[in-house]
Design a protein around this nucleic acid. Structure first.
Lengths: 123, 123
DNA sequence: GAGTTAGTTAGTCGTATGGCTAACAAACAA
DNA sequence: TTGTTTGTTAGCCATACGACTAACTAACTC
């Protein structure tokens, strides 16, 4: 539990950019320096650094500068927490489906009666 | 599988706003009209409608207008797909940890030798 | 000490975002 | 038919975002 707070606002905003998601994917493999991260992108260094800053203030990554090299690494807890938010919504959704299901069941039961009545009436 | 494509860019951007997340949470329970959605917020209707549009173009929700009422409902598949992206990253991360673990194991083994040597030397 | 590498800061630019008001349209209610 | 409700469009505004260049610092290398 590091000190940095990670609001969902900042985390989702950080993940809304393809470049930043690519950085996250890269850092899932292993930590990397800023210039290593910049290699795959046709992008000026300051621009990439800005992305790194966004990821850092979101809490998704942390960085440490040793000598002239800044090494970036993922903070998996924040990734996990974000995933959990989505999972929680799914839970609520699932509960709703359960309710729906029982409702449909009720409905079918009622309709059966109707059908029976109709049939009785018709025949 | 509905026709609407949902890019991660748009989905994460949509989820980066607290108002829109609240709407999503609300719609997890059950579908709702635009004015129902607007009730909890101190926000002009056009502003809220804009949020609804953002959610819709992201694919997270779908809407249907009947009479003068537009009913909004969640598209759970898109939520699930987003969650899966995060889960995938976690997988990569986990694999990395496995590699790390074996590396640390190797390291420890090597250090043991060192320690042994050192002890031999020292004593 | 001079050059190279790695990162950083400052400043610019165009576009996107999130909020607002005012005014309009269409559907329903009396 | 006259209101009321429910959305919708248009236009405004301030701020934030993502990109760039230019110039600078600090740390290694020779």
């Amino acid at each position: 539990m590091a000190n940095k707070q990670a609001s969902l606002d900042l985390v989702f905003a950080a993940l809304s950019d393809a470049t930043r998601r690519a950085i996250v994917m890269r850092l899932c493999r292993e930590p990397a320096s800023v210039s290593e991260l910049s290699k795959p992108f046709a992008m000026a260094m300051p621009t990439l650094l800005q992305h790194v800053r966004v990821l850092e203030t979101s809490g998704l990554i942390q960085t440490e500068k040793i000598g002239r090299v800044r090494t970036c690494s993922l903070r998996a807890e924040v990734m996990a927490a974000t995933e959990q938010w989505l999972a929680l919504q799914r839970t609520v959704w699932a509960q709703r489906l359960d309710r729906m299901e029982s409702y449909v069941y009720e409905l079918q039961a009622t309709e059966m009666k109707h059908v029976k009545r109709k049939r009785k009436g018709k025949q």
